[in-house]
């Protein structure tokens, strides 16, 4: 099996209060550290585990700036054979644009594969769409929220996809296909700094995205960025214990966890 895995370098925003610049024209990411997109980490791990069993190779692909080489080295340290950087000059917010660049890249470079893995979504834009759009454009079968791969045969995959409320759906998908991998499908291995240093010795090919951007339409546009409505501290429930209890039950109902 030859598996292509798309992996993305994203800002680590979980602990940050983000700032907007120039009346919401952009989000200030200048001081943030970057990391591999969590879902992509699971995807790489899953792909590596599969080829360890079936043979073949994992190729990691990142569409992003030159710094994205970092996530390729990481993927190689985890067991990918190759890393391809599709060096894009600008941030592509539109998942259609990202998927089209990916499509053009695969076609133009004639890259063969049995399966393409992406993460379910990326931590920054949370579009959860690039995998599906790419599959649609390639005319290949697709599934997202893949939480288990039970069998990987030359002509098909048996996968489990996560639905809501603890339910899963087992499906049979023809190969070649595109699968978007859900976090929690495995426990991604630790990649030590030494490991990454060793991986750096494997050459990563760099492709200029401009070549594949031809005819990439921007199908959606950002008017501007805004802050979410302020929540402001904990709302303290006071009064008689009984009325507090009733208020609490009201909240539980509103949140949909109690009848």
């Amino acid at each position: 099996m030859n598996i292509l895995v798309f992996t993305k370098r994203v800002p680590a925003t979980q602990e940050e209060e983000l700032r907007l610049l120039g009346d919401g024209n952009s989000v200030d990411l200048s001081k943030l550290p970057f990391k591999v997109n969590d879902w992509d980490n699971y995807s790489v791990e899953e792909a590596v585990r599969i080829v360890e069993k079936t043979g073949g190779a994992v190729t990691a692909i990142s569409i992003g700036d030159a710094e994205s080489d970092e996530v390729l080295r990481r993927a190689i340290a985890m067991g990918a054979k190759d890393g391809f950087l599709v060096d894009a000059g600008k941030v592509l917010h539109d998942p259609n644009a990202r998927a089209t660049v990916a499509l053009n890249f695969l076609k133009k470079e004639g890259i063969a594969f049995d399966a393409i893995f992406t993460g379910v979504q990326s931590e920054d834009d949370q579009f959860a769409s690039v995998g599906g759009i790419l599959a649609g454009k390639l005319g290949l079968p697709y599934s997202t929220m893949v939480i288990g791969i039970d069998a990987f045969e030359p002509d098909h995959i048996i996968a489990r996809r996560e639905l809501e409320g603890g339910l899963q759906e087992r499906i049979k998908v023809k190969v070649p296909c595109v699968l978007s991998i859900q976090s929690g499908i495995n426990e991604p291995r630790y990649v030590s700094i030494m490991g990454v240093r060793k991986a750096s010795k494997v050459e990563r090919k760099v492709f200029k995205a401009a070549v594949y951007e031809e005819g990439v339409p921007s199908r959606i546009e950002v008017v501007k960025w805004v802050y979410p409505e302020k929540k402001g501290g904990a709302v303290m429930l006071a009064g008689e214990l009984e009325s507090v209890c009733k208020d609490l039950l009201g909240i539980l109902k509103e949140k949909g966890v109690y009848q």
Binding site: P11, T13, Q14, E16, E17, L18, L20, V27, H93, E123, D124, D125, Q126, R219, I220, E221, V222, V223, K224, W225, V226, Y227, P228
Partner: peptide, 12 residues
């Protein structure tokens, strides 16, 4: 965007 820290106003 960014787990609800920022919202984008999008249109086609």
């Amino acid at each position: 965007y960014y787990s609800d820290k920022i919202f984008g106003q999008f249109r086609q």
